[in-house]
Simulated assay, not measured.
Amino acid sequence: MYLYLLLNLGSLSIPLLYSFEKKMRFIKHWKAVFLSLTLVSIVFLIWDAIFTANGVWGFNPDYHLNFLLFGMPIDEWMFFICIPYASIFIHYSLEYFKPNLVISEKITKLITIFFMVILLPVIFMNTDKAYTFVNYTFLVLVLLIGFFFGIKDLQRFYISFLIILIPFFMVNGVLTGTGIAEPIVWYNDAENLGIRLLTIPIEDVGYAFTMIFGNVLLIEKFKKKV
């Protein structure tokens, strides 16, 4: 049963179809989006391969295609294209249809500082937990970049991320075992905080934020050049 593949394709299908919508025409930014997805996926796939090799997480062969590359099923490689694309489409749809729906710069900075103040002690107290330490370190780095160089993007992204979390919990919930006999992706709880939102490790929320906002930052940069 290739459930992982179906989740990827199902997540991508509607956003990709509506990318050709006549008014928004999100597809016109395909070069910037393609470059961003490629660069961000390379970083995350390297991280993914290292964690897979060291047992931080792994994949249930009952739910994915048999072809493996660097120890990861091809479905996992697809994840870093399908899920970010669907997510950034939500972000830019909100920008197009609700252009004034943004948080003030002052509040955005306060939110960002708040998250960094919360995350830094968690990082320093959990250097022995690979997923927690690496994940939240990347998240703080992305927040810092957003604070100093992408505050306008953060003003909108904090809102769009709340919307993105709805399909995120649906898809990631299934990936981590919600509603199915066994998880598609299993986690070694010795390498994370052991806090679950349903079946989802709490670190996955930060992981999603870093991956998606990282793409948004690069897309905005590339849109000016390609």
Rank of each mutant, 00 (worst) to 15 (best):
I118D: 03
R196A: 08
I103D: 10
I14V: 15
I180H: 00
A53E: 13
L35W: 10
Y158F: 15
S41N: 04
K22Q: 08
G206L: 06
I46K: 07
L110C: 11
P201E: 09
I107E: 15
W30Y: 07
I46V: 15
K31M: 05
P183Q: 02
I88Q: 03
A130V: 12
Y187N: 06
V56L: 12
I212W: 01
L65K: 09
Y18M: 15
F114N: 04
W30G: 04
E182F: 03
Y207S: 07
I151N: 09
L218W: 07
N60M: 13
G71T: 11
L6R: 11
F67D: 08
K98D: 06
E95V: 02
E182L: 02
F51V: 02
T210A: 07
L16G: 05
K225V: 15
T127C: 06
Y63A: 07
A86C: 09
T199M: 05
G179R: 04
F80C: 05
F80N: 07
L12S: 03
M170N: 05
L37I: 03
E203S: 09
T132V: 04
G146A: 06
I46N: 09
S36I: 04
T199Q: 11
G214L: 00
F149A: 12
A190S: 15
E182M: 03
N135W: 03
K224S: 11
W57Y: 14
F168L: 13
N215A: 11
Q155G: 06
L144K: 00
M170A: 14
T52L: 13
F213P: 04
G146K: 00
I42Q: 12
I14L: 15
F209T: 08
F124L: 14
G214I: 00
P73D: 07
T137Y: 00
K23T: 04
F222K: 12
W57A: 03
G177Y: 00
E105S: 15
L110F: 11
V102S: 11
P183W: 02
G71W: 08
N60I: 11
M125D: 13
L45D: 05
I202D: 09
S160C: 01
N54K: 14
W77R: 01
S41I: 01
R25L: 08
L193Y: 05
L120E: 00
L175M: 06
G177A: 02
L5P: 03
P73M: 07
V185M: 01
W47Q: 12
T210I: 03
E95W: 02
I42T: 11
L120H: 01
